[in-house]
Design a binder for these strands. Structure first.
Lengths: 232, 232
DNA sequence: GAGTGGTCTAGACCACTGT
DNA sequence: CAGTGGTCTAGACCACTCC
């Protein structure tokens, strides 16, 4: 026995089909919730659930009074999972290890202070670390921590635990910005990751915030071969 | 006046706060829906909506009978918008243009046929194109189209419209795989994008499917400076 | 002002799964 | 088997926004 004909999931699927086959064309206004509830013989709340799901995935645009339209040029939305480094490595069946390379309290360069909205001359905690998968360099981490936001952060915290996991437990954030890009390895970075200079590296920067206050800014340079996979 | 105290969004926010401040610790079982409904003085459906939202964002794990737990090490989930190329460029305030560089029906290399699950010796439509932002090379496209799945695709289709947009209208897909990586420019690619050989390029591959049948496989090599931004 | 989606309620039954 | 979340219903009122 398949799903009940009146389940929101069945209706959601029917909606996707109507959009795909252009029974409902891009830009077109579709029937309102009451009409659809009659057509499908279910409660309006059930229709609402199905339409809401389609709207969340970007296929429909809903407005009070104006009604529901099929999105003309949908920007496909994908859910991207950003796991903790250790898990990322271990779920690939490899052994995780890491090495703290430097850690120091100092005044960040202007670029960092402005990005993290820190006051000038305010010190931060700077650390660099190398993470390994099966003993091979996997990613190089360069991180600043705003010790004004997270006063409990000090160099001793990161002797045992890596910064990634320490912050997750001790400095939960309310939002974050992430950027993906490609960069050539500098000579220094090439030495660390054991690749030739100018090798293309996948680069991730992440800044996290507790409301208006920055918590940490991190740059991750992944060893060659790293690929981010998503489904849409 | 802020949101009603009993709105699902207010409750959702309260849940986030309890997780953030570790009133509910990682891994811990939280009260069931009926108990929370009593505490907040609202219907169970309202609690369900709030908890479901938190579960969808990965902060809670819910299981029938077992109850609801705070996720121990949440993999942050982010929503990634993948717009059509033209929009991506135009929404940055630049002018879009494109140039079809080659188009031909031929048998793809084995790597492609196996990836797209095509029969050996089956022909596909191969095209390459360059997309410009304000006249500057922005991304180089190398695409295969499975003409068995999309018989209406033929070289004439792409004289005027770019493949990206033609397929969106004429070959809607049910799912797709996307990969992000970093690659060094080859000499040839460097010439096309007008960058030096070995320049690090941001690379996107995308394969789309109609159920079990592949529609298209595309490799996009972005000019230097390209950054994917997301929020978590 | 009126039409549409957004949400809440109280109650019911179902589906899954731990014990 | 029993406890928990998952979903559906019928009805109600609210909030937004187009006209």
């Amino acid at each position: 026995m398949s799903k009940n004909r009146n389940s929101w999931q069945a209706i959601h699927q029917e909606i996707l089909d109507r959009i795909r086959t252009q029974i409902w064309s891009p830009g077109e206004l579709i029937p309102n919730e009451v009409e659809l509830a009659e057509e499908f013989g279910c409660a309006r709340a059930t229709i609402n659930r199905a339409l809401r799901a389609a709207a969340e995935s970007g296929l429909l645009e809903r407005k009070r009074k104006a009604g529901t339209r099929v999105t003309a040029q949908p920007a496909h939305k994908a859910i991207l999972r950003i796991p903790v480094l250790r898990r990322e490595i271990e779920s690939a069946g490899k052994t995780y290890s890491h090495e703290l390379r430097s850690i120091k309290i100092r005044i960040p360069p202007a670029k960092i202070t402005s990005h993290m909205r820190m006051q000038k001359e305010q010190t931060g905690l700077h650390l660099t670390a190398l993470h390994f998968a099966n003993g091979q360099p996997f990613v190089y981490e360069d991180r600043w921590i705003n010790t004004k936001t997270i006063p409990s952060a000090n160099p001793d915290c990161f002797r045992e635990t890596n910064a990634n996991e320490w912050l997750l437990t001790n400095a939960p954030f309310t939002r974050g910005d992430v950027e993906f890009s490609a960069k050539n390895a500098t000579k220094q970075l090439g030495n660390i990751l054991r690749v030739k200079e100018s090798q293309a590296l996948f680069n991730v920067t992440r800044t996290t915030w507790r409301d208006k206050d920055s918590i940490t800014f991190v740059n991750l340079a992944y060893a060659p071969g790293y690929v981010v996979k998503i489904e849409i």
